[in-house]
Simulated scan of single mutants.
Amino acid sequence: MSNNLTQVTDATFQAEVLESDKPVLVDFWAAWCPPCRAMHPILDELSGERDDIKVVSVDVDANQGVAAQMQILSMPTFLLIDNGAEALRLIGSRPKRKLVAELDEALTARV
């Protein structure tokens, strides 16, 4: 697992994600999921490059409460949470270029 990403747990999700003062990209992943592992370096890069969003990571096996609360059914799932609400849901791995485009589109649509 990468070093730049904050690991969020059932206990810290509310404070780290829902109460964040900037949009948060949450990576819901599992250790047994190869596409999830493939996304970690991309998310790590993104976290280092962007200061307009926070990138965090949730291990769904260890944090089933949050996964259930957010209705995560497949991995990886990426949620963009803005002001405590889901602004974007992306399912499955994708190239960095596509992820950045999808994020930028969602962030541009913010009011």
Rank of each mutant, 00 (worst) to 15 (best):
Q7T: 14
H40K: 12
E16L: 06
V111W: 08
S93C: 04
P23E: 08
R110K: 13
E105K: 15
D27S: 09
V100L: 07
A101Q: 15
E102G: 04
R97S: 15
P41G: 14
V26W: 03
L43N: 04
G65S: 10
T77D: 02
R37F: 03
T6F: 00
S20W: 01
L80E: 09
V58F: 13
I91W: 00
A62I: 01
A85D: 09
A30H: 03
R94L: 15
Q71T: 04
D59R: 05
G92Q: 06
K54L: 13
S2D: 01
H40N: 05
A38Y: 07
M75P: 04
I81G: 01
A106E: 09
P95G: 07
R110I: 08
A101G: 11
M75W: 07
A62G: 11
L18P: 11
D59G: 05
L18C: 11
K22A: 09
Q14K: 09
D27N: 14
N3C: 03
K96T: 10
D82S: 15
A101I: 00
L5W: 06
A87M: 04
A31M: 08
N4D: 08
L103A: 03
I91Q: 00
W29E: 00
Q71Y: 01
T12P: 08
W32M: 12
V56A: 12
A15K: 11
E105H: 15
V111I: 08
R37N: 07
A62M: 09
P34C: 04
S74A: 10
M39D: 07
L99E: 05
C33S: 12
S20K: 02
P76K: 04
E16H: 06
N83E: 15
T77P: 00
L43Y: 06
E16S: 08
T77A: 04
L46R: 07
F78C: 09
